[in-house]
Amino acid sequence: MKPFVAAGLGCRKGCRAEEIAALVRLALQEAGFELAALSGLFAPAFKQGEAGLAEAATSLGVPLVLIPQAALEAAEPRVLTRSERVVALTGLGSVAETAALAGAGPQSILKRARIASANATCAIAVNEA
């Protein structure tokens, strides 16, 4: 059975799709996955309306799934990275890591902790169950 590979994302308002897609490709590579293995992009529901996220998903050929706050909070204890600035803004240690873990499910593990570009963050979680 093919593993479920989730790219969790966070971004600043107005982040361009090209920056997000390039970061996803880099995170996948660092996690040891080909683009074809990617199951979807996962971002917090509070990012609804961010055109760059939707355009990046389209360009990568995967769905964009917006994760409700409760699901992000449930995944939060499993993050590897904690940014006090992000905690102050969102209540989450890492937006990208919680989105990846929540998107890939409760049995998932991080394969690549959060990496950042100028305006976005990405983490890769996998569920092999």
Results as ranks from 00 to 15, higher is better:
residue 58 T to K: 13
residue 4 F to E: 02
residue 75 A to H: 03
residue 14 G to T: 04
residue 57 A to N: 04
residue 101 L to M: 08
residue 115 I to M: 08
residue 95 V to F: 04
residue 27 A to I: 01
residue 70 A to Q: 12
residue 122 C to N: 05
residue 30 E to W: 08
residue 89 L to M: 14
residue 113 A to G: 07
residue 129 A to N: 12
residue 121 T to K: 09
residue 10 G to V: 04
residue 117 S to D: 07
residue 107 Q to P: 00
residue 120 A to L: 09
residue 85 R to S: 05
residue 117 S to P: 06
residue 95 V to Y: 06
residue 127 N to F: 02
residue 37 A to S: 15
residue 14 G to S: 02
residue 118 A to R: 15
residue 49 G to T: 14
residue 35 L to G: 01
residue 82 R to Q: 13
residue 21 A to T: 00
residue 78 R to G: 00
residue 19 E to T: 04
residue 20 I to N: 08
residue 15 C to R: 02
residue 121 T to I: 04
residue 3 P to I: 01
residue 49 G to N: 13
residue 98 T to F: 12
residue 14 G to Q: 13
residue 34 E to A: 10
residue 1 M to V: 03
residue 18 E to D: 15
residue 26 L to K: 10
residue 13 K to V: 07
residue 89 L to V: 04
residue 68 P to K: 02
residue 94 S to H: 06
residue 10 G to T: 07
residue 2 K to P: 14
residue 23 L to M: 05
residue 69 Q to Y: 13
residue 90 T to I: 03
residue 114 R to F: 09
residue 69 Q to H: 13
residue 34 E to Q: 11
residue 99 A to R: 11
residue 70 A to C: 01
residue 45 A to I: 03
residue 76 E to K: 08
residue 51 A to L: 15
residue 23 L to G: 00
residue 128 E to N: 09
residue 81 T to R: 02
residue 5 V to P: 00
residue 95 V to K: 07
residue 104 A to Q: 06
residue 44 P to W: 10
residue 34 E to H: 07
residue 38 L to S: 10
residue 106 P to K: 12
residue 46 F to E: 08
residue 77 P to F: 13
residue 2 K to D: 08
residue 75 A to G: 00
residue 35 L to M: 08
residue 80 L to F: 04
residue 73 E to M: 07
residue 24 V to I: 00
residue 94 S to G: 13
residue 89 L to A: 15
residue 55 E to K: 14
residue 115 I to E: 04
residue 83 S to Q: 07
residue 84 E to A: 12
residue 46 F to M: 05
residue 106 P to E: 14
residue 124 I to L: 01
residue 98 T to G: 03
residue 58 T to M: 07
residue 82 R to P: 00
residue 70 A to G: 02
residue 87 V to K: 15
residue 61 G to R: 05
residue 57 A to F: 03
residue 103 G to M: 11
residue 26 L to V: 09
residue 81 T to P: 00
residue 109 I to H: 11
residue 112 R to T: 00
residue 82 R to Y: 10
residue 61 G to L: 06
residue 84 E to N: 09
residue 100 A to E: 01
residue 125 A to K: 05
residue 90 T to H: 04
residue 99 A to Q: 10
residue 15 C to P: 00
residue 4 F to M: 11
residue 64 L to Y: 09
residue 81 T to M: 04
residue 31 A to R: 02
residue 121 T to N: 14
